[in-house]
Design a protein around this nucleic acid. Structure first.
Lengths: 127, 127
DNA sequence: CGGTATCCCATGTGATACTG
DNA sequence: CAGTATCACATGGGATACCG
């Protein structure tokens, strides 16, 4: 029950609270969402996500990796290639991210019906 | 496209990002969750939520109210009574909070089957 | 009972420039 | 290509005390 631990979510009691500690923060949800269809390279993520600096992108990806939600695969090639993907645990979050996304889209006055998972046109641009 | 606006989520493009701006933060999800069964008084919330100061509780409740997710009803009595509840929009978030809660409980090694909505024993204490 | 006021610190996030 | 390094700052959040 020591409170003075790091910020690692050990002694949390509430499941909602606990979950928010793992997917909270400004970018985590969005990154998970962008990995919904599978493997993405670092540069792909960077290009598809507006408003995030390389530093933050790297930092958050490392946090997600350390937290067991995302995998990082480095290919020893030139030029370097690094691929990110969701772990099974991370993937379990997709239904909920999808719900959230639909809610958000509805609130924004967009069409909530357009399914995030296989919809392309709108999503590639603005999500 | 002005970036220098307040922290009001006007110019967001990503629905996930947008949604996180409305339910992000350390306590918002938990508060919404605690209002899942309906009206709660300020003191009830305060007592049932560990690890949150009155200042933060008030502050977050006001944010949620301003944001149209929670209603605040003041009764002009002595002693004073203030009741909080979810708006329809706020209530639409419950399925997603529930999913999140189940995921969290599973991750914590607890029984994810215990349904948050009508389960009593475990929840009253530890959620 | 249901809050406010004040002060303060940690951390999260950003801008910019540079590298193996 | 896929990051790091460094600096700087805003804001989120906590402790404590007090109020109508």
């Amino acid at each position: 029950m020591k409170k003075s631990e790091k910020n690692i979510h050990t002694d949390t009691i509430c499941a909602v609270d606990y979950a928010f500690q793992r997917i909270g923060g400004k970018h985590k949800g969005r990154i998970i969402y962008h990995l919904r269809e599978g493997v993405r390279r670092y540069g792909e993520l960077r290009r598809s996500m507006t408003g995030i600096t390389p530093k933050m992108l790297t930092q958050v990806l490392r946090e997600l990796e350390e937290d067991g939600l995302v995998t990082r695969h480095v290919y020893l090639e030139v030029p370097p290639r690094v691929e990110y993907n969701l772990t099974d645990t991370g993937r379990e979050l997709l239904p909920f991210i999808t719900l959230l996304s639909q809610w958000g889209r509805k609130q924004m006055g967009m069409d909530p019906q357009c399914e995030p998972v296989n919809a392309g046109m709108l999503l590639e641009e603005s999500v």
